[in-house]
Design a protein around this nucleic acid. Structure first.
Length: 551
RNA sequence: GCCCCCGUAGCUCAGCUGGAUAGAGCAACGGACUUCUAAUCCGUAGGUCGCAGGUUCGACUCCUGCCGGGGGCGCCA
């Protein structure tokens, strides 16, 4: 156990805030005030002039204590200033009553040590999920054609969410639900067969160009059932390959049809009946979803004896619940109305509806040549996901889709994304990494790197750029947790852009290897370079984006 | 009519469990390379945070009601 043991570092990190918090608590007690809540809030001020850490405790407790906030803050600050804790340089009062703490740069140097010690395998990762099993279902496109642009956002989002959940300690399963049963795949099979014999596709059939191409590859003389199997398998494989080309690999491809053989659907209907959650009306079988928070009741079995779309899906979600502690579904905005009924069904079956989270992704508006690209399946005017990936590359595809909150509808300019110009943020971030690697390889050539951290004097790192870099890096763990809590990978993307900005600034102002830089400073900066590199790799990794060594 | 998302700089968007003077990128203008990638950096300009109330010491953030845009409300999938 050396001086740079990871656990010790983690404690030291906590020590900073713990020390400040307890000094605040002591001061309050001295003044005879008990804080309303037991938690004393600390935050990092946006403005650096306000110190490294700030507390609003005086403003929060002032009213209850019958004191003026600013006056109370001053008394607290005076008490702490009279006996400064280790690592705190001074305490001041500002604004309406903030108590601001300025720390010795040491605390940021400890951050650096912590990052180097953790490396890309550990940095930002925690075990908050306690290994609980989470199933993330996303994409789940119908096996009736290639993936198109409309699937892309959910695909990139779902995979990034799964990465983030894994990073905070959940046991994640990525799952794709294949709707290989029902009217759509029947029509698809009919369309393939029709095209193969040179006939028109049937009413409501699939008229895309790909149907023609696929039909030619299909073996002749297949029955409708065989054509269906062949078509679904072909489509699934096509989709799988496209997803794999942007690094998305599913653990499970769950076949809807498999539930017919296993009687899972029938059993589910029976169990809903036993739970007294169904009834017959007008020759149909209904789910009493309105008893469980839905707007109205929903049909499970139509009067013609067919299941509705909902019914196998209920059986499917139940199956997932039996395999996982909690479920996350990624659905498009057009399926929003579906959430309440699915939760209702799960509750009726005795599952906790709160363990099912449905993330809704808003639509993406594709723009090309300054005009919106209309997607029309009927006319076969679809933009395949494959085309987008080929145009702009896997990294740009993923990064662009993950740049924004899925709560907002996104405008995706294909021309801009396709053109390999500086506007593309992924280049900015990847370039930051390439530059750091460039510094390292130069140092490697000169046999100056790797260099043992024990022999580096980190106290030489005092430049504003260096401090900025470390401050940004420090936030990563919190950003990861926040993005997990809100299922918001775009927060990682935002943080990466911030970090890249810090890196470029540092690169510009702080020369690392060369004449005019002392060997001591070089070695200290090389440690910083490595910590920043770990940050970039860690963040990009969560988004599934490569960190190239050169560009 | 009901439900969900959005409305922040000219454009595309950030803004954490409410905090201090609302931030980036692009576009515009002006600067910076004898050294590790100028795909970079620095500066200037640009805002009634859709509107109106409410809660609070404090609201872009929370609550209510409007306005505007998108999506959804099937015995379709």
């Amino acid at each position: 156990m050396g001086p740079y043991d990871r656990c010790q570092r983690a404690k030291e990190r906590l020590m900073i805030t713990t020390t400040i918090t307890s000094s605040l608590r002591e001061a309050l007690e001295d003044l005879g005030i008990t804080p309303q809540s037991d938690a004393i809030n600390l935050e990092q001020p946006a403005n650096k002039e306000h110190g490294d850490w700030s507390s609003n405790i005086a403003m929060v407790t002032a009213k209850n204590a019958g004191r003026a906030p600013r006056e109370l803050a001053t008394e607290i600050a005076n008490k702490i200033n009279a006996d400064l804790p280790d690592g705190v340089e001074n305490v001041t009062v500002a604004g309406p009553g903030f108590i601001n703490f300025t720390l010795a740069p040491l605390w940021l140097h400890n951050v650096l040590l912590e990052i180097l010690n953790q490396g890309v395998e550990q940095f930002g990762r925690t075990d908050l999920g306690e290994g609980k099993k989470v199933n993330v279902e996303f994409v789940s496109a119908n096996p009736t054609g290639p993936l198109h642009a409309g699937h892309a956002r959910g695909a990139c989002y779902g995979d990034a969410v799964a990465n983030i959940l894994g990073a905070v300690g959940f046991n994640v399963e990525r799952e794709f639900y294949v709707n290989d049963r029902g009217i759509q795949v029947s029509l698809f099979a009919d369309s393939l067969l029709a095209r193969q014999s040179g006939d028109q596709v049937p009413e409501n059939g699939y008229g895309g160009e790909y149907v023609e191409q696929w039909a030619q590859k299909m073996p002749h003389g297949l029955s409708q059932e065989e054509a269906l199997s062949w078509g679904c398998e072909y489509a699934k494989e096509d989709q799988r390959q496209t997803l794999e080309s942007i690094g998305i690999v599913f653990d499970t491809w769950f076949s809807e049809r498999s539930m017919v053989d296993s009687d899972a659907i029938e059993n589910t209907i029976a169990d809903l009946g036993e739970a007294k959650a169904t009834y017959e009306k007008d020759g149909a079988s209904w789910l009493q979803s309105s008893q469980y928070g839905d707007d109205k009741d929903r049909v499970l079995i139509k009067s013609d004896g067919e299941f509705t779309y909902l019914t196998p899906d209920i059986a499917y979600h139940r199956d997932k619940f039996n395999r996982s502690d909690s479920l996350i579904n990624v659905w498009g905005a057009d399926h929003h109305g579906y959430v309440a009924r699915m939760k209702a069904a799960m509750e009726a079956l005795g599952h906790d509806p709160d363990e099912l989270t449905v993330a809704i992704t808003q639509l993406v508006k594709l723009v090309r040549g300054g005009e919106e690209v209309r997607l029309s399946k009927r006319h076969g005017e679809i933009i395949e996901l494959r085309e987008i990936i080929e145009e702009i590359g896997p990294d740009a595809t993923r990064f662009m889709y993950l740049l924004q909150s899925v709560d907002t509808k996104q405008t995706f300019d294909l021309d801009l994304a396709a053109s390999k110009v500086m506007e593309n943020p992924v280049f900015y971030v990847q370039m930051a990494h390439a530059r750091l690697r460039s510094i390292q390889s130069k140092a490697e050539t000169l046999q100056m790197w790797p260099f043992p951290i024990e022999h580096s004097d980190l106290s030489l790192l005092v430049h504003q750029r260096e401090m900025d870099l470390l401050r940004t890096l420090f936030n990563f763990t919190d950003v990861v947790q926040l993005s997990e809590r809100e299922l918001a990978p775009h927060k990682i993307a935002t943080w990466l852009r911030e970090l890249a900005t810090s890196v470029h600034g540092f690169y510009h102002d702080c020369y690392v290897v060369g004449d005019g830089v002392s060997q001591e400073l070089t070695s200290a900066r090389l440690q910083l370079v490595e910590s920043a590199r770990i940050g970039l790799v860690s963040g990009l990794d969560l988004l599934g984006v490569e960190a190239p060594n050169s560009m």
